[in-house]
Design a protein around this nucleic acid. Structure first.
Lengths: 215, 215
DNA sequence: CAGATTATTGCGTGCCCCGCACTTTTGCTA
DNA sequence: TAGCAAAAGTGCGGGGCACGCAATAATCTG
C-alpha cells in the first residue's frame, strides 16, 4: 500500500485522476455559471451538461449545487497546509501563520475585480452563504491540524484550533470588506492588518475604547 | 407613529406579537422535533401541524427547516447587544466583551447534557451545520455593531468586526469541544479560556511553538 | 483476456420551496 | 359599533432537487 516517495499523491491511478478531474470540472463549471447568471438561474442540469455528464452523476460528486460552487474554497486546504509547512522553522508561530497565509493568498492572486458585483449578488443567497461558511470551517480544521503539527505535541490543540479560527475570521472579514468596498480597498493588506491586530490581542481597538470611556 | 417611551419595542401591537409568538413556536417545535428524531426524519408538515398552522404558513416564517432549527441562535443577538451595553463603562473593552459573553452564557444556562448525542447527530447533517454557521455569523454582525458603539466613533469598524469574529470563533469552538468531549469538560470555562487567550494574542501557544522549534 | 471493481446513468419517488389567488383575521376610523 | 383596508393564513400547483435502486459501461487486476 505504501508507495514510492514521501509525496501524498504517488501518481494517482487513472481512475482516481479521472474522478478528481470530473470533480474539479464540475466545481469550476458551477462557479463560472453561477457567477454569470446567478445561482437561482442555474439548474443542476446545466452544470452537468456543461461538463458532459448526467445530472445524476453530478449528485455523485456533490450533494448540492451550493457545495459545488464552494468547492474551490475547500480545495485550498492542502495548499494552506503546505504553505505553513514551507515556512522556516525559526519563525515564531504567529509570524509563520501570517506569512503562510500571505504566501498562499499571493499565490492564488486576488479575485477578479469584474466579478465583484456577481459575487455580491451570489452571496445574497442564504443557502450559498451558509455553504461558504461551511467550506471555510473545513479549511479551518485543516489549518488547526497544521498548527498543532508545527507547534509540537505539547501545544494545546484547543488553542491551535482557536488560532485557526482567528485566521479564518480574518480571511472571511477581509474578503467581505473587499467585496463591499470600492476598488481602492485591497484584500491582502486588510487581511494582514487583521491578522497582526489579532496576534497582538487587538490593542488598538481596546486602547481606543479605554480612552473613549475615560477622557 | 412615534410611541411613548425610549424602549425599542413600545408594546408591540397584537398582530406583531402573534407573529413573533408563531415564529418562536415554530422554531422551538423544529428544534425539539429535530433533536428527538433527527432532521431527515422530520417533515415540514410535522413542524407545522405541531404548532397548528399549515405547511405553507411555515414557509412564510422560515425559508427552510434548517433555518427554523437554528433560529434560537439568531434570537440571542438582542441579548448579546444588551449584555454588552449592561457592562460598566469603566471596564476595558476586552473585559467588557468577555464579561458580557459570560453573563449571557450563564443566563442561558448550558445546554442539557442528555441532548448531546442528539445534537451531534443533528450536526452531521451538512445543511444544518452550514445554517448554524450562518446563524452565528448573524449574531457576529450584531456584536460587531455593539462593539463599535461601545468603542466610540473613532474605533476602526473593521477591527470591531474582527473582535466580534474572534468572540464568535471562541463560542463556536468551545461549543464544539463541549459537544465532542466527555461530561467532565464544561462549556463556559473553555469559552472563557479561549477568549482570554485571544485577548492576549495567544501567547501561550506561540511561546510553546517557539520553545519547540528552539530547544 | 477474463473476472472483479467501480463509475455512470435512467428511472422513480418523496419532499421542498415558492408564486398566486382566495379566505380569514386584525386594527383603525368614522 | 360598524365597516373597511391591510395583513396574515391557506390551498393549489409547478419546478426543481436529492437520492435509492438496478442496469450498464468503463477500468483495473491477475
Amino acid at each position: 500500500m505504501r508507495m514510492t516517495s514521501e509525496s501524498v499523491a504517488p501518481v494517482l491511478g487513472l481512475r482516481e485522476r479521472k474522478k478528481l478531474a470530473a470533480r474539479q470540472a464540475l466545481g469550476a463549471a458551477a462557479l463560472r455559471l453561477a457567477l454569470e447568471r446567478g445561482l437561482d438561474q442555474l439548474r443542476v442540469e446545466d452544470i452537468a451538461s456543461e461538463v458532459g455528464v448526467s445530472p445524476r452523476t453530478f449528485n455523485n460528486y456533490f450533494s448540492s449545487k451550493e457545495e459545488a460552487v464552494c468547492s474551490f474554497i475547500v480545495a485550498q486546504q492542502e495548499r494552506v497546509r503546505e504553505a505553513l509547512r514551507a515556512r522556516p522553522a525559526h519563525e515564531p508561530l504567529w509570524e509563520a501563520v501570517i506569512n503562510a497565509a500571505v504566501d498562499q493568498a499571493s499565490r492564488d492572486g486576488s479575485p477578479r475585480r469584474e466579478d465583484v458585483r456577481h459575487m455580491r449578488d451570489m452571496l445574497r443567497n442564504a443557502g450559498l452563504f451558509a455553504e461558504m461558511l461551511r467550506a471555510h470551517a473545513t479549511v479551518e480544521r485543516v489549518l488547526a491540524e497544521a498548527v498543532t503539527e508545527r507547534a509540537g505535541g505539547t501545544a494545546n490543540p484547543l488553542h491551535a484550533r482557536m488560532l485557526a479560527g482567528i485566521v479564518q475570521s480574518a480571511s472571511r472579514i477581509a474578503f467581505h470588506t473587499w467585496l463591499t468596498s470600492g476598488p481602492d480597498v485591497e484584500f491582502l493588506p486588510t487581511f494582514v492588518d487583521l491578522l497582526r491586530e489579532a496576534s497582538a490581542g487587538m490593542p488598538a481597538l481596546t486602547a481606543a475604547a479605554a480612552s473613549a470611556t475615560a477622557p
